[in-house]
């Protein structure tokens, strides 16, 4: 159809306004992180001083966040990939029930989940004080994304026929899983893995409740710096966070296009 002139201009303006709304603060924050004095603006010159201060103050949180994200990834791979295969294999009432229960944490606010975990396990002091406590929360929250990504790809490649092929050649169920299922579900596993790492690194709702002074993650540190540090340091810290997360988001976007059946993206403010 021939676009209506006024409609076109209005749509363009709305689109550009939305893009500006999303991008301008992000760019401003990146710039502020390397500006000597944000209130004087760029005239004050560029500096890496704030980045250095953030690394001195908060490098522990960055390391812990990466460690927890990788740990979460490991656990979701081990728990999720085999289970996704088992759930996708025979759509029965039981498998639907399991799927529903396992994906429920996505629908329940992180705050409520964290509260429940604290009430149930807060008494186990060693567990409560260790980063494992946060890891459990992150696994709970990200597992559905891994499950869905893998199940979607398993449904798309008709893995059942390939398994029968391998079985006819003498492969045991376990051999079929590792030789045929996993290699052919690689796309979904990778998409799920990117999602899990991205969500884990940015997770705040659960983590804020679950963390202790000794187990601060990057987003917890961010909240801390927003509340108590000067704007430049908060910005520099945010910049470091962007450096970690933007490549993951870009990779995720590329995979999202390659994988039309990938699940809806998640996360919560």
């Amino acid at each position: 159809m021939i676009p209506h002139r006024l409609t076109f201009v209005l749509q363009l303006l709305v689109t550009l306004a939305c893009a500006a709304f999303l991008l301008v603060p992000a760019l401003a924050s990146m710039l502020a992180g390397v500006t000597a004095n944000y209130f004087q603006g760029l005239r004050s010159g560029l500096t890496l001083r704030w980045i250095g201060e953030v690394l001195a103050l908060y490098s522990g949180t960055i390391g812990l966040s990466i460690a927890i994200a990788l740990g979460t990834l490991g656990v979701t791979l081990v728990l999720g990939v085999p289970a996704a295969w088992a759930l996708a294999r025979k759509p029965s009432r039981l498998s639907r029930l399991v799927e529903e229960v396992v994906t429920l944490p996505v629908a329940i606010p992180g705050l409520a989940l964290a509260l429940a975990l604290i009430l149930a396990y807060g008494g186990f002091r060693a567990f409560r004080m260790s980063p494992l406590f946060i890891l459990v929360g992150h696994v709970l929250y990200t597992l559905p994304f891994m499950l869905r990504a893998v199940m979607a790809v398993l449904a798309a490649v008709d893995v059942k026929a390939l398994e029968e092929g391998a079985a006819s050649l003498g492969a045991s169920p376990l051999q079929r899983f590792f030789h045929v299922v996993v290699p052919n579900a690689k796309g979904g596993i990778l998409a799920g893995a990117l999602m899990v790492v991205t969500l884990s690194i940015g997770e705040f709702n659960l983590t804020w409740m679950l963390h202790t002074p000794l187990t601060k993650t990057l987003p917890v540190g961010l909240a801390d710096s927003y509340a108590s540090m000067r704007l430049e340091i908060a910005s520099a810290y945010t910049l470091i966070f962007f450096v970690l997360i933007v490549p993951l988001l870009v990779a995720l976007q590329m995979f999202g296009r390659a994988l039309p059946a990938a699940p809806a993206k998640g996360g919560r403010p």
Binding site: V157, E164, G165, L169, G170, V180, P183, N184, K186
Partner: peptide
């Protein structure tokens, strides 16, 4: 120990 040829061939893409 049978050999089977499937309608979809079921050749492993990996």
């Amino acid at each position: 120990n049978v050999g089977m040829v499937f309608q979809s061939y079921a050749l492993f893409p990996n």
